[in-house]
């Protein structure tokens, strides 16, 4: 436990040094989203090894992504049928899978730019419109956010008009239909193990 605390202290210290804040920030959805992306970019940009960057990026992503909301929307009607234990396990496995793919993608970055276009507010939810400018095309990426306390948190990512959560939902729905919720959890856990082993 001592080592964990030490590490946590160092991490906090580093984040503070680089101008990061572990506390809630005020600001509009677009400001908050931009600050997370900027922080991630400055981590990606520095010279340290991937092993050193990864935990910092995990932290940044986990602060901005509302895993529970994404998990809940992914299971949709099956969420209502799941037991509390199943829900908890699903959130854990789902967030690990999501983090793995997300980190794997940003690892392969080259020289793309992110442009923040505009935001659309509706009471406690918002959409932030961004575009990734690559060598050949502009890829629209929109973030759906909801307000929790003073934080705008991501509950869906829409890339080229395709909702990430809907995509997971349609796949997982088929799997639950065939193998039940426990079957799905087993598949997710196997996939996580496979991905961790291949790392």
């Amino acid at each position: 436990m001592k080592t964990f605390k030490q590490h946590y202290f160092i991490l906090t210290f580093l984040l503070a040094l680089s101008g990061f804040s572990l506390h809630a920030q005020a600001g509009t959805p677009i400001d908050q989203m931009k600050s997370t992306v900027d922080e991630m970019m400055s981590v990606l940009r520095n010279d340290s090894t991937w092993e050193q960057k990864e935990p910092v990026l995990r932290e940044l992503i986990s602060k901005r992504f509302y895993y529970r909301a994404m998990a809940q929307r992914t299971l949709a009607t099956n969420w209502k049928k799941a037991s509390d234990a199943q829900k908890k396990e699903f959130i854990d496995l789902f967030s690990e899978l999501l983090l793995f793919t997300y980190l794997d993608r940003i690892k392969a970055y080259t020289d793309e730019k992110v442009e923040f276009k505009r935001e659309k507010l509706k009471k406690k939810t918002a959409v932030v419109y961004t575009e990734i400018i690559t060598g050949t095309a502009n890829i629209p990426i929109n973030y759906k956010l909801l307000l929790s306390g003073s934080n705008w948190l991501v509950y869906d990512v829409i890339i080229e008009e395709v909702s990430l959560v809907s995509n997971y939902r349609s796949t997982y729905k088929e799997i639950v239909k065939k193998d039940g919720i426990d079957g799905l959890l087993k598949k997710m856990s196997d996939k996580n193990k496979e991905l961790t082993a291949s790392k």
């Binding site: 992306v37 991630m40 400055s42 990606l44 997300y102 993608r105 080259t110 990512v157 890339i159 995509n167």
Partner: peptide, 18 residues
């Protein structure tokens, strides 16, 4: 790209991190 969570991030070559 969507299914994999994200496209690629903007990395400017200039500037250093504190």
């Amino acid at each position: 790209i969507l299914v994999t969570g994200c496209g690629q991030q903007n990395i400017r070559q200039d500037g250093t991190v504190a």
